[in-house]
């Protein structure tokens, strides 16, 4: 179950994320759950594997924006690096970055389910 404490322990900047949600915890947790379940990371992997740099950049950029707004730092960090690589149309070395983002997302999902 998501709580302020579990999110903080995960590494999220909870205060920042909450303040964007006008300190409405219910809304914040709801949006975090939405971010975890929207399937965009899967779509990003598919796009990267198929070598579609434009679509990959758009997806990475969108994911970065959402996770930045929710202050989910452990997921944001590899996504931000990946976005910049893709912006420079560098299609190499994405695998560890995406894998890190996927791992952090799965960890958070486990916390949310726990």
């Amino acid at each position: 179950m998501l709580t302020k404490e579990t999110l903080t322990a995960f590494g999220a900047n909870c205060d920042e994320g909450l303040s964007r949600c006008m300190n409405n915890e219910t809304l914040y947790f709801k949006l975090v759950q939405m971010a975890l379940g929207d399937g965009k990371l899967t779509a990003l992997r598919t796009a990267l594997e198929s070598g579609n740099l434009d679509e990959s950049f758009e997806l990475a950029h969108a994911l970065k924006g959402v996770h930045a707004n929710l202050a989910l730092t452990p997921i944001l960090t590899p996504l931000a690096t990946l976005t910049e690589k893709l912006r420079a149309r560098d299609g190499s070395g994405w695998e560890p970055l995406l894998a890190e983002a996927e791992k952090q997302t799965e960890d958070l999902k486990a916390l949310a389910a726990g």
């Binding site: 964007r20 949600c21 006008m22 409405n24 949006l31 939405m34 924006g65 959402v66 707004n69």
Partner: peptide, 13 residues
């Protein structure tokens, strides 16, 4: 915004 989460955050603000 194509991201519902971003829309929701801004709308709430």
């Amino acid at each position: 915004d194509d991201e519902p989460i971003n829309r929701e955050i801004l709308g709430t603000m």
